[in-house]
Design a protein around this nucleic acid. Structure first.
Lengths: 228, 228
DNA sequence: TAGATTGTTAATCGATTAACAATC
DNA sequence: TAGATTGTTAATCGATTAACAATC
């Protein structure tokens, strides 16, 4: 189908961003764009854009550029966003409840079709179109509706067992918000996306501390380098 | 202080993960570990761990390994987690409310000290220890409490203006959950962490689609390659 | 001292950027 | 046709891994 032999992870991670920017261009009424213009907008190099896209095929036209809406749907197809992967959400705590209603799953190729929690208090709670079910109903649900994605909003302690169970129930992908690091070496062809909000916040903190230190250190240097 | 000349972003992004794993080792009562053992646990190479750590200094001891709790606090210090960066959360919708109570900010070197929303309906709502304030109170609040981090849980449309305002009010770091891509070229030494949950979900979708395609393609090949 | 494991240098690998021929 | 911009190859840059001397 495509020359998609082995596309590097770095490239894949950039595709959603291209997809977003192309969407914005469409809503601005832009129908055609060159790699140079897009690069400028996105703060990357034109070379990188062309190189990335050509992992999947030649979507542009020499001397002209790229057709925005065409390119966007090509990328959407590559990402598998045109599909309708059924997903279950495990854990209806604060974060789980927020994720159940905050995201437009259809936009990302998914469809949330079940929410589960082990807590008596939460079972039966209505969240958008869905109702929280007990964990005991999970196996039966999976057999019936064959979800492929599990969104994990559970405590670290519960994660290993729940992962194991979900994998055995046929889950093909984990979107993991628990503080547990899923690796699942035993089961192959399972996709894992460990989100780790805490790691992201720590990286932010590093940046702040770094800037503060740099500033402290640069003040005396500035005097010293006045005419250097 | 350290040989922290210019540490690459890849290294920084791995530090939180080291920090987490070392925390787990501590709670398991492990007091000493070699780069080889840690590497095995974390599914990385020992070389990488040693290389990463030596960007900041020699924390180990030849012939022995690393003292777990010592190494952990060193990394914590590098990340700036031992500090207490005041943070404001902008946007108290589903995701904002969840983030306000779901995370233990103190663990990540932060302290949530204010929540703001433009909606009349949400202003006055109690979230944990805090109460949602109107956006009109933001400027005064920043002058008084000097927050350095802004957590953005606002719609894409509102983001550019709010970012601008926050930057002018002295915010040094953005933890951005809006679907807008902050770049802020004009203002330097501002740290930005664009989370983009949608991008993460799209990357997951790609993985699923990829696996499906690989499987489809491998079935006939397997027959063809039976004795090759 | 012998064994182990670090810190660090050198080799490899991969990803990004630059250059340019192909072509619309 | 001339101008523009792609697709693609080659050059550069950076990050990861391997190797080993230093040293606890």
């Amino acid at each position: 189908m495509s020359k998609n032999d082995k596309v590097s992870n770095s490239v894949i991670r950039r595709l959603p961003r291209y997809y977003r920017f192309l969407g914005e261009l469409i809503s601005e009424g832009v129908s055609k764009i060159s790699s140079r213009e897009l690069a400028e907008r996105m703060n990357v190099t034109a070379s990188q854009i062309r190189q990335d896209l050509n992992c999947f095929g030649g979507f542009g036209q020499q001397g002209y550029g790229y057709n925005v809406s065409e390119l966007r749907s090509e990328i959407g197809e590559i990402l598998g966003i045109d599909r309708d992967h059924p997903a279950v959400l495990i854990g209806a705590g604060n974060l789980g409840r927020a994720l159940s209603v905050h995201l437009d799953y259809a936009k990302y190729g998914c469809r949330l079709c079940g929410i589960f929690d082990s807590s008596e208090t939460l079972v039966g709670m209505r969240l958008g179109q869905l109702t929280v079910s007990p964990m005991s109903a999970l196996a039966g649900f999976c057999e019936k509706y064959k979800p492929v994605i599990a969104i994990l909003c559970i405590p670290k302690e519960a994660a290993p067992e729940v992962c194991e169970q979900l994998a055995s129930l046929g889950i093909k992908a984990f979107w993991n918000f628990s503080h547990y690091d899923i690796s699942l070496e035993n089961i192959s062809d399972v996709v894992i996306e460990n989100v780790h909000l805490g790691d992201s916040l720590m990286a932010l903190c590093y940046g702040i501390s770094k800037n503060e230190k740099d500033k402290e250190n640069s003040v005396p240097e500035e005097n010293g380098n006045e005419e250097a």
